[in-house]
Design a protein around this nucleic acid. Structure first.
Lengths: 258, 258
DNA sequence: TCTTGACGTATTATATAATGATACCTATCA
DNA sequence: TGATAGGTATCATTATATAATACGTCAAGA
């Protein structure tokens, strides 16, 4: 086995993390054998690592099926994350007000490489499960929040991102044409917000307004998801957007004081 | 250094987890030295472990202050947790309806040893930060949710818990007298719900209704937090409780089908 | 009822990979 | 300018993780 950068790199720890990452939406409870298969580790190693994680309280083990599952510790990690994110403390009360005001689902998204990640979600309507829980990562180019943020980046960076960042087709309407995305982002640069339709799920419209940092770049965006059945583009711009932008702007100034 | 259970236990992995656990609400960004101090590991070890976690994307490193912070991966872990919790998928849409219906903050709590942990939170009003984020662990005996769940346990277990589980004084009103807690839990056993005042924060009232599993024990509870300034005990029981219990009951049956 | 195979668990000899001491570098402050 | 503290890099040593193997258990199929 190879070390990525010898001597400052602890392989066993990295392997343990591989086990943790083996769990996702499609793999919520894994047997030892599945764990071994998904991580590419051998049986013995998986056994030892999984046992260690179990003893340390990172994995629960069903006493009858012998399957491992994420433990409550995984939620505590989110808790610790929230305290460490300089944005979230500022944003939270304002997002709550906004969601109550709009009566629609409000999200806070941050950029995470070439994806966005939903850091906070305040669902107001029944939607599909994945839209109600935090930590979801989506290709930035396919989301209103991602486009709104990207729109604040320097032009060359923007162009590079549009050309290279990944796109996954979620619905028949997911925009795969990068030229079209470029248009959408350019519009967002001009207008200061992004709007997208049916990218993740059909008949869902997303609007997003960037939260601008001290350097002019957005690290985050306030986003709102509504149903196309009850909302038109014009009405969104007239009724939702102003409040959305006010909220985003209200969060911006205090972010990372210089 | 000693292994807890020789040979099936990987010490380096466990130490790496110690680093992760060093982050909490009071320690959101740690320098190498602080990390070493908080984990009790030596400088070299901390360096290697922290580096590994950084390379693997578990810790972000501020390039200027050189401090480590939880990365977005910590939120992804919460995401994976949600898919693995058999209760949450059932509960989520019903909790959303409830919170919209009540216009008050609704939480889903689960038992976690002698604590409760908030698994889902739907804040509807501005409150203190910690009440808006998931993953918070609180002593079960000091919370309405904890008492509501405990109330469904067999009597000897209940008695043992009341006698031994930890209590932390958060406010001047936090009940420290275990006899009083016993009374409160007994009442919850009779009535099928628990109500508590000013345990975590002054002028906050919590009501909780247990979600009963197939074995008659509650693994979770639906909880609602309101302000004592606008709500009386009687009005809570008249207006909030019925809906709260309906929701809890609606979640129960499908939980862990036999 | 016996055979087979898949899976979880336990043991052990071996050498790899984690270790911790030490030295180096870079800031900050007196 | 010198001293201190904190971060970074190097290296010999052996403790510790490893992978092979063997054992136990259960369920399916013949």
């Amino acid at each position: 086995m190879k070390s990525k950068q010898d001597t400052l790199y602890v392989g066993s720890l990295a392997k343990g993390l591989r086990l943790l990452r083996a769990f996702d939406e499609a793999h919520s409870a894994l047997s030892l054998a599945e764990l071994a298969q998904r991580t590419g580790l051998d049986k013995s190693g998986t056994q030892r690592l999984a046992n260690t994680l179990h003893i340390e309280g990172m994995l629960d083990k069903d006493p009858v099926t012998r399957r491992f599952r994420p433990s409550h510790a995984w939620l505590q990690m989110a808790y610790a994350y929230y305290w460490s994110d300089p944005l979230i403390g500022q944003a939270m009360p304002k997002l709550i007000s906004l969601s109550q005001d709009l009566g629609e689902t409000v999200n806070l998204a941050e950029i995470s490489g070439d994806h966005i990640i939903y850091v906070s979600r305040l669902p107001c309507k029944r939607t599909y499960f994945a839209a109600t829980i935090i930590g979801r990562r989506l290709p930035a180019l396919s989301t209103s929040a991602g486009r709104a943020m990207l729109a604040t980046f320097p032009e060359d960076e923007r162009r590079h991102a549009i050309a290279t960042w990944p796109i996954t087709q979620f619905t028949p309407n997911t925009t795969l044409d990068r030229a079209q995305i470029a248009t959408s982002v350019a519009e967002a640069t001009r207008e200061g917000f992004a709007i997208s339709t049916g990218q993740m799920i059909l008949n869902e419209i997303g609007v997003a307004s960037p939260i601008i940092g001290h350097d002019g770049r957005a690290q985050a965006a306030v986003q709102c998801s509504v149903s196309a059945h009850t909302w038109s583009r014009d009405r969104i711009i007239a009724e939702i957007l102003p409040k959305l932008q006010d909220t985003a702007n209200a969060i911006s100034p205090t972010f990372r004081t210089p």
